[in-house]
Nucleic acid binder design. Structure first.
Lengths: 367, 367
DNA sequence: CAGCCTCGCGGAAACGCTTTCCAGGCCACC
DNA sequence: GGTGGCCTGGAAAGCGTTTCCGCGAGGCTG
């Protein structure tokens, strides 16, 4: 009797099962199950014997079997757009930590904006029988929703989702942080501020752009069409969009970006075209990824805490999964955003030269 | 009969099981199973009827039940050090794509260098009954190995692992790429080159440092003790290490870093202390994360392709899991590295001023 | 002291699926 | 025409766990 048994077909079998523990502790498998699950009604002496046997055999309960009988897999699905955008690993990490701490496992998938991939991903999640799915792609892909919704599945979306009892939504307050950013720039004296959007088929990208335009309007500042450049939330997209902005007859004195990756691409484009940041042009990002503070110059950005997002997502999922959850009836969770000022923003070029120097501090190489 | 049945305990049950399909297709469940698993011996007409019923009912086989009986979960474990280091998401993405394409699911976990976390992670992987685990932490934590090894588990390590039949190792050829980097610097005229290490309890960090020292020695270049600064593979660590190097009596003309995050931190420290890169000091990274080319200046770095790593890891895992795998007996996989020259390296300061200017230009050197 | 209730344990059923075993039907060959 | 072999479909036996139910023992009440 080795530690690994083999069946006729050569498949690997579980090394030690609840039966082995029961035999060793000289109790029934039901008692082992109860002891392991800390059901209080079991006699302390017996429980001790069981735990001893568990220890000696190295027994680990088989989650698949558990899931089979309980009907709950204790797996949460987490769908993101692309895992290589640094914002998402940070989110994944927070989400995973929280989920694990609360007794769940996480199944991660990234859509890479590809419908076929997304379809396959959902299929796999259904097959693995996840208890619920958080769709943190910041943009709903309709077919995705349909497929999941018809399963009467606990779901969490960001920004917006169909109004159904099994669906919960995390409402991100983009306006708040973006208004702070615009006011910050206006206070410094900027009047000509451009915006680089995300991919406009994403609702969240549209929401961010609209929040920008609205905030500008509130301050009586016009935003000409050509000051809205479309990006795609990647560094490449930010780079290209900024290159287009740079070619404009009159260069804006500041640029707000729909996310940090876009801002990093923009910084890069400005460096290439020998425009100094923030001396010649100020740049503001969105998300506040960890990396943002390590940019040159450190990026002023609007923080959307992925910790907040993760906490809300896990809580909302559990609210949907567990009928007894205290917030089971809640349907919306609010996520705040706020400006973090670093060194990529300063007074507009040509204004108050003495203060500009002070405001920028660091000397830029090659500028 | 709704689409969702409830058990006595109120837990969610599978919406449609193999029995429903069998009933609808008016065959036995065995026939459905055979048809779904594409066993050829089933009558084509019946198979068609089964597939039609599958389509109509929206049947999705329950993976848990499958795993329970087959003994194989078709889940691969992937352990990384920290998901927030951009290198790892890239690796995770490649690994995941490959695994999914080959019929496996991936369970990801990051140790965050915390033994307790690691322990819990392994426990969860055992509970979920993964078919095998790839430990891509670039450094073996002994206890981790012990726990996994005693389960006679297919395992894949990077760099080194115990010599056991169920263990496979990906040997990264650090020396190759690092030698190219050192020779590149030497060819530019650098004689005084420093190195920022990773956390030295990781074997791979030690291997990179040793490869650096050896390559320098081959060219007859001395590396004084104080030119080896210890970092920890994070931006923060690189920043602090570089700040220490900057305080030295004689500043080296180039710095090689144990990974790209370290190099980014170093760039940041140099910016803070107003040292221009590459005019005053050249910087070389390691890994070639996607981000590296978007640094200012774009980072010269040694590429360790995470695609290569992922391909090898999945192949090695399958070799360990599937007894019939063509490479089942293979124990080592070789991973190449090579230099990618961008714009963070140039001639050392004070030498050939005319060429320095050219070397730092915005245009790609295209070397 | 008898009867009833409570409590704790063990046996057994169920979860959804795969796989094996067996019976029955068909064809071919003797 | 009978028998043997082969192929297909149906029934049943698990996989490892949780949960239900019944049973016996002990305590309490009348």
């Amino acid at each position: 009797m080795g530690t690994t048994r083999k069946s006729r077909t050569g498949a690997r079998r579980q090394a030690v099962s609840i039966r082995d523990v029961a035999r060793r502790a000289r109790v029934s498998i039901a008692t082992v199950s109860r002891a392991v699950n800390r059901i209080t009604s079991v006699d302390p002496d017996l429980a001790r014997r069981v735990w001893k046997a568990v220890e000696e055999t190295g027994y680990v309960p088989n989650t698949q079997a558990r899931a089979l009988v309980s009907g709950r897999s204790h797996i949460l699905g987490l769908i993101v757009s692309e895992i290589t955008n640094p914002f998402f690993p940070e989110l994944v990490q927070e989400f995973d930590n929280l989920a694990v701490a609360q007794g769940y496992e996480v199944m991660i998938g990234s859509t890479d904006y590809d419908p076929a991939r997304t379809e396959a991903l959902i299929r796999r999640m259904l097959q693995r029988n996840v208890d619920g799915v958080a769709v943190m792609t910041f943009g709903i892909e309709e077919e995705l929703v349909k497929k999941l919704v018809e399963r009467e599945f606990p779901l969490v979306f960001v920004d917006a989702g169909p109004d159904l009892p099994n669906i919960r939504v995390l409402k991100v307050n983009y306006a708040e942080g973006i208004r702070q950013a615009v006011q910050h720039l206006a206070a410094l004296g900027h009047r000509s501020v451009a915006f680089i959007t995300g991919p406009l088929h994403l609702r969240s990208a549209v929401a961010r752009r609209d929040a920008f335009v609205k905030s500008m309007a509130e301050l009586g500042l016009a935003v000409p069409m050509e000051h809205i450049a479309e990006g795609n939330h990647t560094m490449e997209g930010g780079l290209e969009a900024m290159e287009r902005l740079v070619k404009l007859a009159e260069l804006p004195t500041a640029v707000v970006c729909s996310n940090d990756m876009t801002a990093i691409g923009a910084l890069h484009a400005l460096e290439r075209t020998t425009h100094s940041v923030p001396n010649e042009i100020s740049v503001v990002g969105f998300d506040d990824v960890h990396l943002a503070q390590f940019m040159l110059p450190p990026l002023t950005t609007v923080r959307m805490s992925c910790k907040d997002l993760a906490v809300a997502a896990v809580e909302a999922l559990r609210a949907g999964i567990e009928p007894e959850h205290p917030k089971a009836r809640r349907r919306e969770w609010e996520i705040a955003t706020r400006l973090v000022v670093r060194q990529s923003t300063a007074f507009p070029r040509g204004s108050l030269p003495a203060l500009v120097k002070q405001g920028t501090g660091r000397r830029r190489p090659n500028s």
